[in-house]
């Protein structure tokens, strides 16, 4: 069972307490953007077999959205961080890099 620590209330929550929200750090495109940008924003997802960054909501807890770094191939969780982050924290990125040397970075 997937267990994520909510970065706000510190609860180690298992997945029945959480709602998944798919890919994190999406750049939003709206009116005025090109067709390709809008299509990418709406439908093209990273879907990596390996390190992935996701949105989760602690729905049966503090109710807040947060972000998590996880390996989709092993279900290992690297860490969680607040939803207000525009990029994964540097120490988390270092930790992932140490564990997955061939990881190409979050971009």
């Amino acid at each position: 069972m997937l267990i994520l620590e909510c970065p706000y209330c510190g609860v180690k929550a298992e997945e029945t307490e959480l709602t998944p929200g798919y890919e994190a750090h999406l750049k939003r495109f709206g009116p005025g953007s090109s067709d390709t940008e809008f299509e990418d924003y709406m439908f093209a997802r990273k879907n990596p077999k390996g390190v992935h960054f996701e949105r989760w909501r602690h729905v049966y807890g503090c109710g807040k959205w947060f972000l998590a770094a996880r390996d989709t191939n092993t279900l290992e969780v690297f860490g969680t961080y607040p939803a207000q982050s525009s990029a994964p924290p540097a120490d988390l990125q270092d930790k992932i890099k140490a564990k997955r040397p061939d990881w190409k970075g979050y971009k």
Binding site: M1, T16, P20, Y22, N47, H52, L75
Partner: peptide, 14 residues
């Protein structure tokens, strides 16, 4: 289905 990306051929227990 589960609500998160997964390649393990193992679904969530709950």
């Amino acid at each position: 289905t589960d609500g998160f990306n997964n390649f393990t051929q193992r679904g969530s227990f709950h």
